[in-house]
């Protein structure tokens, strides 16, 4: 891929094959670099540079309340974070939220995609309504669900027959997490279903029809024909949603502010840096958060053997 020859590649079928022209390819290379330079620089300025700075700051005992007392302490911040139960508890909660929300979103999103795939009427209406949760600000979604679950002003308690009308969802960990995850699932399922719908559209109708003729039941067609053929779409959707869920912050901030052990790893990092001005330990947590996202990504990619570059380059 890194040769400079201007040769036709598979995704540029329209370009007629021609002899390599080194002058032209060199100018093409130059133009491309010019076009890419500024966006690339901006992306790196706001991510790579601060991340390196975090790496550096994480080696210091450094608090903004006493900026002159900055002292080099090596890896102590990491030791402090990794030996503190809080870090592991929050990681566990984050992983739990990620696994539960992504599983629900996958199942519900797939059901939605199946319905949308079949529907011939009112496509515009469905598309419009499915995009609304996607567009709604997460903070607003958090409020809506917090108030819905509220025992003084909400409606959930009176609508669910097996729940006492005075039940306070935000008084303990389990039920608080249910409310948080409800908001998260509501807002992101539409996005999941759109990605799955696009994957579903690529499964050949002929193949499904052939399976039907051969006497395959609905479930057999689903498991043996449809799902295997949209594996790539499912994996991309899961990967992107999982990494997004792992960074959960807005909903928790709005709905519980971390009360009753509902703090995510992002929230812990935020609290150390912005509320307590502990830049040293906060930077260490930032680095750990970044590494753990890489681990989650690596696990999913390994587990499902997704070729990301392929999937996204389309």
């Amino acid at each position: 891929m890194t040769t400079t020859e201007a040769r036709p590649t598979s995704h540029k079928p329209s370009k007629p094959p021609k002899a390599p022209d080194s002058d032209r390819s060199r100018s093409e290379n130059r133009l491309a670099l010019k076009l890419v330079a500024l966006p690339l620089a901006l992306m790196l300025l706001v991510t790579a540079f601060p991340m390196l700075r975090a790496l550096y700051l994480s080696l210091f005992d450094y608090s903004l309340t006493a900026p002159d007392d900055r002292t080099f302490i090596g890896l102590s911040n990491y030791v402090t974070a990794l030996t503190d139960g809080l870090f592991w508890r929050d990681t566990l909660i984050t992983v739990f939220i990620m696994v539960v929300t992504v599983s629900f979103e996958l199942v519900i999103g797939f059901a939605f995609a199946m319905v949308m795939h079949k529907v011939i009427f009112a496509r515009g209406v469905i598309r419009t309504s499915i995009l609304i949760p996607y567009g709604v600000i997460t903070v607003v979604s958090g409020f809506a669900w917090q108030f819905a679950f509220s025992n003084t002003n909400g409606f959930v308690n009176s609508w669910l027959p097996f729940i006492d009308t005075d039940f306070n969802w935000f008084a303990e960990q389990g039920s608080s997490l249910v409310a948080i995850m409800a908001s998260e699932i509501w807002k992101t399922t539409p996005f999941m279903s759109l990605l799955l719908l696009a994957g579903l559209a690529q499964v050949s109708e002929d193949m499904i029809e052939a399976a039907k003729v051969d006497g395959a039941t609905w479930f057999q067609r689903l498991y043996k024909v449809i799902l295997p053929n949209m594996r790539a779409a499912i994996m991309v959707a899961v990967l992107f949603r999982a990494l997004d869920a792992y960074r959960i912050f807005d909903n928790i901030f709005v709905m519980t502010a971390g009360a009753n052990n509902t703090e995510s790893i992002s929230f812990l990092t935020y609290r150390q840096v912005i509320e307590q001005f502990q830049l040293g330990i906060g930077s260490a947590l930032s680095v750990l958060l970044f590494l753990s996202v890489l681990v989650v990504a690596a696990v999913i990619v390994k587990l499902f053997r997704v070729d990301l570059a392929d999937a996204r380059q389309g």
Binding site: V46, T47, P50, M51, R53, A54, L57, L64, F240, L243, Y246, R247, F249, S266, F267, T269, Y270, Q272, V273, I274, L279, G282, S283, L285, S286, V287, L289, F290, V293, A297
Partner: peptide
């Protein structure tokens, strides 16, 4: 895929 929160500290600074 970047965890946005991990940039908050350094950017704040």
């Amino acid at each position: 895929m970047f965890p946005v929160v991990s940039l908050v500290g350094p950017l704040f600074d």
